[in-house]
């Protein structure tokens, strides 16, 4: 069953240097009870895509298309309806928990807020729920630590607090934006383990944004690869790892340390001035005449797999 369905999503920012096409005609489905990985290089539009879903982008952003969730089009819902979805139905776990947590409010209060807001609890009850949520996120002595402020937490603990805040109201969908970024490798694996546990327990779906294929391989059922504001491949994670379709995905896998760390030549294009034809063709060793002139569609490859490459046309 499809939980969230994105159709032809465009998110553009108007800047002094031109229009930044951060997300361009993206269509993506997230099914119930699955973890979908969204991978790609920095600046390819992953974060903007996630922020577009909950409409958390600044007002100078143009967002067009359709995002269907439980019978609503999130892009056309009024602000009040949107507030009922944020934190309750769809929760976001942001990257960089230090700047994403309010420095002057206690962790306990920040985790209590979703309970007060969406469950109508009083502060004292919400606080108790927040403490048990912190305990579920394996924060030691949560009753005491709940009274502390974000700067008194370590990086890993802050991310645990962020996770307990996001999962507070048992949302159907969690948008996790690089939850392990900036953490020590040992802490990273703890956080991954925690997220796997909490998300599977609650039968929630998750969109996991990462540029770390190893993390995606650990946690995801399916994977979507983004390049220069577009989805270039959607696949089951197993198929993707054993036999990537798109030349960019092959490059990504070959660039892993495990597979010889062979870099993809060139740089990812600017989102203001994207290449004609296939956006990857300047860096692609399979590029043909057609790739320079025509923009490829998503082609079915079988087993629910789609790739944006003329090799599969």
């Amino acid at each position: 069953m499809t939980l969230l369905s994105i159709r032809n999503l465009k998110s553009y920012f108007v800047t002094r240097d031109g229009v930044v096409k951060a997300v361009n005609q993206v269509s993506l489905d997230i099914f119930e009870n699955e973890t979908l990985g969204l991978v790609g290089e920095s600046g390819c539009g992953k974060t903007v895509l996630a922020l577009s879903i909950l409409r958390l982008l600044s007002e100078n952003t143009v967002v067009e298309g359709k995002i269907s969730f439980k019978g609503n089009d999130l892009l056309r819902l009024n602000e009040e309806g949107m507030r009922d979805i944020r934190g309750k139905e769809i929760a976001q776990i942001f990257q960089n928990p230090l700047s994403s947590l309010n420095p002057v409010l206690t962790i306990g209060l920040q985790v209590s807020e979703p309970f007060m807001l969406h469950r109508g609890m009083k502060l004292s009850d919400a606080w108790q729920s927040a403490i048990s949520m912190l305990r579920a996120a394996k924060i030691p002595s949560p009753a005491e630590r709940g009274k502390e402020y974000p700067h008194q937490f370590s990086g890993g603990m802050r991310q645990r607090a962020m996770i307990s805040m996001g999962l507070a109201c048992n949302p159907a969908l969690i948008l996790a934006d690089e939850p392990t970024k900036g953490l020590d490798v040992t802490i990273q694996s703890q956080i991954i383990e925690l997220m796997r546990e909490l998300v599977k327990d609650r039968k929630a779906s998750m969109l996991l944004i990462t540029h770390d294929l190893a993390v995606a391989a650990e946690l995801c059922d399916r994977i979507a690869v983004m390049y220069s504001g577009e989805i270039v491949e959607v696949s089951e994670i197993k198929d993707f790892l054993s036999n990537p379709g798109h030349p960019y995905c092959r490059g990504l896998l070959r660039s892993l340390p495990l597979n010889g760390m062979e870099p993809i030549p060139g740089n990812s294009p600017s989102l203001i001035d994207v290449p004609e034809g296939c956006r990857f063709h300047p860096r692609c060793k399979y590029a043909m005449e057609r790739c320079r002139n025509e923009h490829p569609e998503m082609y079915e490859v079988g087993n629910g797999r789609k790739t944006r490459c003329f090799l599969y046309a």
């Binding site: 958390l56 009922d84 944020r86 976001q92 420095p103 805040m165």
Partner: peptide
């Protein structure tokens, strides 16, 4: 402009 304001809006606060 801070990230924590985005977090607060993302929670569903008015």
């Amino acid at each position: 402009r801070q990230d924590y304001i985005r977090t607060a809006i993302g929670k569903g606060l008015s």
